[in-house]
Amino acid sequence: MDSKTFVYVTYIRTTPERLWQALTEPAFTERYWGVRLESDWAEGSPLAWTQAGVTVADPEQVVLVSQPHRRLVYTWHTFTPAWAESVGLGEDVRARIAAERRSSVAFAVEPRGEQVKLTLTHDFDPAGVVHALCTEGWPPVLSSLKTLLETGEPLPSP
């Protein structure tokens, strides 16, 4: 096997259009994730990742699939020294994760009556440590997204 895959499914009382907005609008992603994702969301377009005051843009950090209100896939962000310092990650760990094959994340959006089924699939380097970091991180991010869409407020930061 040449990858590790993390899959997470949740059901959210919202519309596909509103969920797409939550996945693609910088002010929205910042509310539930603490990350501003900026792109025009066209396939092949660059994706800028801003977290803790540090913006990371890289030519390999791109949108792979963009089917509004249905499917979004992009490459995972670049692990720069400035980013690692801003989130409190040691240089030893940053260097290890920066050496891994770049992962990708996919969001599948499926209407289900008054709710939407959201399936996140994140594909990783099988020999890497990004898998462990992200599989711990995705459940709280997606829970906060669900809470924000259903109540108007994200979950409090831990």
Rank of each mutant, 00 (worst) to 15 (best):
S45C: 12
S45L: 09
S45Q: 09
P46T: 14
A48V: 09
T50C: 14
Q51F: 01
Q51Y: 04
Q51D: 09
A52L: 11
G53H: 10
V54Y: 01
V56C: 05
P59W: 05
P59S: 07
P59R: 02
V62Y: 07
V63I: 15
V65M: 02
S66K: 02
S66L: 06
P68R: 02
P68A: 07
P68G: 12
P68M: 01
H69S: 13
R70I: 09
L72Q: 09
L72V: 01
V73M: 13
Y74M: 11
Y74K: 03
Y74S: 07
H77Q: 12
H77V: 01
H77C: 05
T78D: 11
T78M: 08
F79I: 00
F79W: 14
F79A: 00
P81L: 02
P81A: 00
P81C: 01
A82R: 15
E85C: 06
S86C: 04
S86W: 00
S86F: 00
L89T: 14
L89V: 15
E91V: 05
D92W: 07
A95D: 13
R96N: 11
I97T: 02
A99T: 04
A99P: 10
E100V: 01
S103T: 07
V105A: 05
A106C: 11
F107R: 05
F107E: 09
F107L: 06
A108W: 03
E110D: 13
P111L: 07
G113H: 10
G113N: 09
E114H: 12
V116Q: 11
K117A: 10
K117H: 08
L118Y: 03
L118P: 01
T119C: 07
L120P: 04
T121L: 02
H122W: 04
D123W: 02
